[in-house]
Amino acid sequence: MPLVRRESLADQAADALLDRVRSGEWEVGGKLPGETTLAQQLGVGRSTVREAIRQLAGRKVLTSRQGAGVFVANLEIAEDWDAVLRRADIDAVIEARIAIEVEASALAAERRTQEDLTNLHRALAERARHRHDVYEHVDTDMAFHRGVLVAAHNPILLELFNHFAPRNREAMVDMLRHRGDYGDDADHAVHEDIYSAIESGDSARTAALTRTHLGSLKRPPR
């Protein structure tokens, strides 16, 4: 019979600990017994317990505090962020864009540099040239909106936008292909207005324009 590898044993120990957490044996914030006690309870070595705890800490279920011990952080494993994005429908995507981009646009109006304005103007011109192919239209549209995030000079908002971008692109392409119309003069004029508001430093107007524009993309209630 082949020997059980330590990694497999650690996985089993992690599953056993997770079951005990889910059963309510320890509440959120509750302290787990020490490694020696857990090793005896699980019938494994301390090194296996240590690896199991490391796994569950990486999955945000447990947290280790130097000199204090191991504590329960969550009763369930947090769902993978990419899985959440893949499952999100178009309205959820747009609502997330509103949450990120409205604040970012206001910050852009306050913080934009001349280089930011130059890059935004260039992105706006590229957007104007690509209104007929849905993929090119979405790509140039996203480049403009990302330029607004860059001009906000907030690395966290930019990172959120970047991580969200692939699902955003997919959702926008699907939506515009379904509607069959995109990139008309009125739509582009809104983006020109957003640029002008950023250029003039009017954060309230920039935020209002961005909110109205993104809100208009949502499906009407049934």
Score class of each variant (00 low, 15 high):
Met1Thr: 14
Val4Asp: 09
Arg5Gly: 08
Ser8Ala: 14
Ser8Cys: 01
Ser8Gln: 15
Ala10Tyr: 08
Ala10Ile: 10
Ala10Lys: 05
Gln12Thr: 12
Ala13Ile: 09
Ala13Met: 09
Ala14Gly: 10
Ala14Ile: 05
Leu17Val: 06
Trp26His: 10
Trp26Ala: 07
Glu27Ser: 14
Gly29Trp: 10
Gly29Arg: 05
Glu35Ile: 13
Glu35His: 12
Gln41Thr: 08
Gly43Arg: 11
Gly45Tyr: 03
Arg46Met: 10
Arg46Cys: 06
Val49Tyr: 05
Val49Asp: 01
Val49Gly: 00
Val49Leu: 09
Glu51Cys: 06
Glu51Trp: 04
Glu51Asn: 13
Ile53Gln: 07
Gln55His: 11
Leu56Trp: 07
Ala57Ile: 03
Val61Leu: 13
Leu62Arg: 07
Leu62Gln: 08
Gln66Lys: 14
Asn74Arg: 15
Glu79Gln: 12
Trp81Glu: 01
Asp82Lys: 11
Val84Arg: 07
Val84Thr: 09
Arg86Lys: 03
Arg86Leu: 01
Asp91Lys: 08
Ala96Pro: 00
Ala106Arg: 07
Arg112Leu: 05
Leu117Phe: 04
His121Asn: 10
Glu126His: 07
Arg129Tyr: 05
Tyr135Val: 15
Tyr135Trp: 02
Tyr135Asn: 12
His137Lys: 08
His137Gln: 12
Thr140Tyr: 00
Met142Ser: 06
Ala143Ile: 02
Ala143Lys: 09
Ala151Gly: 05
Asn154Ser: 10
Pro155Val: 11
Ile156Phe: 14
Leu157Lys: 07
Leu158Trp: 03
Pro166His: 09
Pro166Gly: 07
Arg167Val: 14
Asn168Pro: 01
Glu170Gly: 02
Ala171Arg: 12
Val173Gly: 05
Val173Phe: 09
Leu176Glu: 01
His178Thr: 14
Asp181Asn: 14
Tyr195Ala: 00
Ala204Ile: 04
Ala204Asn: 06
Arg205Lys: 14
Arg205Met: 13
Arg205Gly: 00
Thr206Asn: 02
Thr206Gln: 00
Thr206His: 00
Leu209Glu: 08
Leu209Gln: 05
Thr210Gln: 01
Arg211Asp: 12
Leu214Ala: 01
Ser216Ile: 05
Lys218Val: 03
Pro221Asn: 05
